[in-house]
Design a protein around this nucleic acid. Structure first.
Length: 173
DNA sequence: ATAATGATAGCG
DNA sequence: GCTATCATTATT
């Protein structure tokens, strides 16, 4: 009963739309041992292009950010504070660097915990969500209330970008 | 409140 | 090369 979201969804919409619309959807991970686990996406953040000083792409195209310059539907991961892998989904068309950070799923809240739980590491950099056999996203029905707040942990980004309400939280019924 | 922990960007 | 910084979390 799988209903995998095609990459066209990530390519044809910007990070803001995708961040909001990934809430309630099902993040699927098949582990090394073949066990498949499903999680509901509960919290996301949008990072929106080179102008967005909170977005890593504001530094331009580097080895770390290059995947964001590809078409949507790829995975962007990076290590933060030497210990946490952040899981992001690239959105938009080629050369429009954007991504959505997965900050919370049904089993845990907090991007570092998500990376831990899903056993994310550098090998996921550039993973294709439409083709991968270890991580993908499925459509699913849900009901709940959606909250919107400023993004977390980006004090460096300056008032304009720091205050953008680009964090989305689902409170299930 | 702060330590943990290492890749990365920016500077030389 | 060197170093400050970091889309965080567990512990005091």
């Amino acid at each position: 009963m799988s209903d995998r979201i095609p990459n066209s969804f990530f390519q044809e919409n910007d990070a803001l739309f995708v961040a909001k619309n990934l809430l309630g959807k099902t993040l699927v991970r098949q582990f090394e041992d073949g066990i498949i686990k499903r999680f509901q996406i509960l919290e996301t953040e949008a990072y929106l292009g080179e102008d967005d000083l909170a977005c890593h792409a504001s530094k331009g195209k580097t080895p770390r950010t290059s995947v964001m310059y590809e078409e949507g539907g790829l995975v962007y991961v990076y290590l933060i504070y030497g210990m946490y892998w952040m899981l992001n989904i690239v959105t938009g068309s080629k050369d429009h660097p954007q991504a959505v950070l997965i900050r919370g799923i049904s089993s845990c809240i907090g991007p570092g915990r998500v990376g831990n739980q899903l056993k994310i590491d550098k090998s996921f950099y550039g993973e294709n969500l439409e083709l991968s056999d270890r991580i993908w996203i499925e459509n699913s029905d849900f009901s709940g209330e959606i909250l919107q707040t400023p993004r977390i942990g980006i004090e460096y980004a300056g008032d304009i970008w720091k205050n953008k309400p680009w964090r989305f939280i689902l409170i299930p019924d």
